[in-house]
Nucleic acid binder design. Structure first.
Lengths: 351, 351
DNA sequence: CTCCGAACGGGAACCGGTTGCCGTCATGTT
DNA sequence: AACATGACGGCAACCGGTTCCCGTTCGGAG
C-alpha cells in the first residue's frame, strides 16, 4: 500500500505547504494568482500540488470571501420540453460565466418550492431563478414577495423567468415572454382561415401561463367582434395526457368546432392522437395549433402550426440580468417577443 | 429606514447570539438539535432567529463538518428527453434524501466534462454522476479511471449512469440498462414480421450507447442466420435532424429496405417526417421502430413501436447506490432490463 | 446544612481557506 | 561601505459555523 501519497483528496492547503516546505499563505498565493512569488518557490509548490492532486475546497474559499458565487434555479418539471430549454439556457450562460448551478424540481408543489428557496438562501446563492409559470393567488404573491425581500437583504436576488411580476416595488427581476400576444397572433391566424368555432384546450385556470394564453385567445376573437362560445374553453394541464383526455371528452360530448388551439405543443400532441383515434383528418376535418414550438412539433403529422418562444434565450437573459445587478437595483421587467410558425396543421375552413 | 433589523440576511450566528443575549455556541445548540437547552433560552433564541430572518450559512456548516453533502450530475444535453428523465430521477431521489443537486451540461465536449468534474471535486460533492453514453476510447477510459481514483481518495464516488464500466478495479458504480438486449428484442420483433432488409439509423460509431444498440441489431440478425447488408447500417447522431437527414439520403440513394430501426425515438421522429415527405406510408410501405419510449412516441402517426427504458428509475438508483457506499466499496455494476413496446409503426411485410 | 451530580451555558479551538501586516534578505545607489 | 528599496514569505486574524471541555448553578439526597 502506498498510503502516504495516495491519501490525496483529503489533503489541505497546509499539507501541501508542508510538502513544498513553505507556509500555507504562500501556497494560497501561488494558486491565487497575482502576488509576487519567486519562480523556484512557485515550481516547488506547483509540484506538490500536482503530486498530491490537491484541489482547494470551494466552500472554504467561498466562506473566506474568495470563490465564485453559485446560482440556483427552481422549476416544476425538468422533463417538460420548454422547461428543459430554459434550464439549458440558464445552465449554459452560468457555465460561460464560470458559475455553478444548483437545480431543484418542485413537481408543482408550493411547499417544495419554499423549502428549496430556503436552502438556496442557506447556500448564499448569488441569484435564485424561478422558472415557469405558477398558480397566481394573493397568498402566492405575498409569499414570493417576502422571499424576494429576504433574498435581497441577503445580497442575493430573485429572478422570475416566464412568470409575471409581483407588483410594484418588489426587488425582483422578471424575464417574461408574451403569452397573450403569441396566443393572440396564433388565434388571429386561425380565425383568418375562416374558422369560427375554435376549441381551446387550456391549462389550469389559475396558472399564469395558461391565463395569458387564454386571454390572447379571447382578445383575438373580440378584436374581430366575435364572442367565443364558453363551451369551447376547456381546462386541464400542460401534459400530453391532458390534451388527449380533453380532446376525447370534447368529441364524446359532441362539441362542434372546426379548429383546435392547444395551450402547449404537448397538449396538442395528445389532442392530435385523440383526433386520429376518432378517425378525423387533420387538417382536413379539423385544424390544430399548439404553443411552444418544441422540436417535435415538426414531426407530428401534419407538422404543427405553433408559436415559437425563445426559451433558451429566456434562460440566458435571466442569468445575465440577475448577475448584473446588486441588492438595491430597482425591479426590472423584460418581455420577449414570440412569433407564429406556420406549418401544415391549420387549413382554411371548408377546404 | 428601519435599517437596524432589516439588514437581515447578512446576519451571522453571533449577531443572533447578541440579540438573544447568549453565546454563539448556545444558538448553534438550539438550532442544531439535541443538546440540552432550557426552555426560556430556547425561546429567546428562536425569537431572535425569527426576527432577524436568520439562516445558517450552509457552506460554513459544511466546512465545519456538519451540513448535508451535495451531489452532482453531469450530462450532455438536458433537452434530450431521455437525459431529462434520468436527471429527473436523480434530482427527485436526491431531494427525497435531503441533498442538493449541482448540474452541468457538457454539450458533448470532453474538456467541459473534465472541468466540471474538477469543480465538483472542489465542491466536495458526495458523488458525481455521469449521465448518458459517451465516446469510448482508450484515452477516455484512462482519464475517467484517474478521475474515479481521484474522487474515491477524496471520499467521493463516481457513478456511471447509462454508461459502461471502465474495466475491473476502478472505484466506480455503474448503473446501466441493456442497450444490446433491447435492440436485439426489437430487431427480432421486426424480423419476425418478415422483414429482411432492415435499415439501421445509428448514432456516432464510437458512442457507447450507439454501439450497444448496433450490436443488438447485428446479433438479432445472426441469431436467425441472417447477415445484414452493411450498406443498411448508417451513422449519424441521436438528434431528430440526424434522423431526418439520414433517411432522406437513404431514399435519394435508392437503398432498398422494408423496415427502419432508429437508434433513438428522436431519430425515428425525424426519419418518419422524411418518409412522409417522400410520400411513403408507415407502416404500409415501410415499417419504423425507435428506442427510448419517450412520451411523444405515442403521438407520432403511426404511434411508434419502440423499446422502453426505465430512465427515471436509472437516475434514482444511481443516487441511492452512490450514497449508500463509502470510498473503498468494490466496484459495482447494475444492469436494468428493457422491454419492447409494440405500437402501430411496424407491420408484417407485404401486408 | 452539606455534598454530589445533572443540567446548562460560555470560552476557545478547529474546519480550510484568504489576506493584511511586517520582517528579512538581496539588490542597486551614491 | 552605508543605506534605501523592493521582492518574498511567514504570522496571525478572520470568514461563519460546530463542538470539546470546563465552570456555574440549581436541585435533591443524606
Amino acid at each position: 500500500m502506498t498510503r502516504k501519497s495516495e491519501d490525496a483528496g483529503r489533503s489541505t492547503i497546509r499539507d501541501v505547504a508542508a510538502r513544498a516546505g513553505v507556509s500555507a499563505s504562500t501556497v494560497s498565493r501561488v494558486l491565487g494568482g497575482v502576488y509576487p512569488v519567486s519562480a523556484a518557490t512557485r515550481t516547488r509548490v506547483l509540484r506538490a500540488v500536482r503530486e498530491m492532486d490537491y484541489v482547494a475546497d470551494a466552500r472554504a474559499k467561498a466562506i473566506a470571501g474568495a470563490g465564485t458565487p453559485t446560482l440556483a434555479f427552481v422549476l416544476e418539471d425538468i422533463t417538460g420540453p420548454s422547461f428543459a430549454h430554459m434550464a439549458q439556457g440558464v445552465e449554459r450562460e452560468a457555465a460561460r460565466l464560470g458559475h455553478l448551478c444548483l437545480v431543484c424540481s418542485t413537481d408543482g408543489d408550493v411547499r417544495h418550492e419554499l423549502e428549496f428557496i430556503e436552502m438556496m438562501r442557506a447556500q448564499r446563492a448569488a441569484a435564485v431563478i424561478l422558472v415557469g409559470g405558477t398558480a397566481d393567488t394573493p397568498e402566492y404573491r405575498e409569499r414570493t414577495r417576502r422571499i424576494a425581500d429576504s433574498l435581497a437583504s441577503a445580497g442575493s436576488r430573485l429572478v422570475l423567468c416566464g412568470r409575471p411580476p409581483l407588483g410594484p416595488g418588489a426587488p425582483v427581476t422578471v424575464i417574461e415572454y408574451d403569452n397573450e400576444g403569441g396566443a393572440y397572433a396564433l388565434v388571429a391566424h386561425v380565425l383568418t382561415q375562416g374558422h369560427r368555432r375554435v376549441l381551446f384546450l387550456g391549462g389550469r385556470p389559475d396558472h399564469t401561463t395558461a391565463q395569458g394564453r387564454e386571454r390572447g385567445y379571447l382578445a383575438a376573437h373580440r378584436a374581430r367582434g366575435l364572442d367565443p362560445d364558453p363551451e369551447l374553453l376547456l381546462h386541464g394541464d400542460f401534459t400530453r395526457d391532458s390534451g388527449h383526455r380533453l380532446m376525447r371528452q370534447a368529441l364524446e360530448r359532441g362539441l362542434e368546432f372546426t379548429a383546435v388551439v392547444a395551450a402547449t405543443d404537448m397538449v396538442a400532441a395528445g389532442a392530435l392522437t385523440a383526433l386520429h383515434e376518432a378517425g378525423l383528418d387533420v387538417p382536413g376535418d379539423v385544424s390544430l395549433a399548439g404553443y411552444d414550438d418544441i422540436p417535435f412539433a415538426r414531426d407530428l403529422h401534419p407538422a404543427l402550426t405553433t408559436v415559437h418562444v425563445p426559451y433558451e434565450e429566456l434562460g440566458r437573459l435571466a442569468v445575465r440580468t440577475a448577475l448584473g445587478h446588486t441588492a438595491d437595483t430597482a425591479d426590472e421587467h423584460l418581455l420577449l417577443g414570440t412569433h407564429v410558425v406556420v406549418r401544415g396543421s391549420v387549413a382554411a375552413v371548408g377546404d
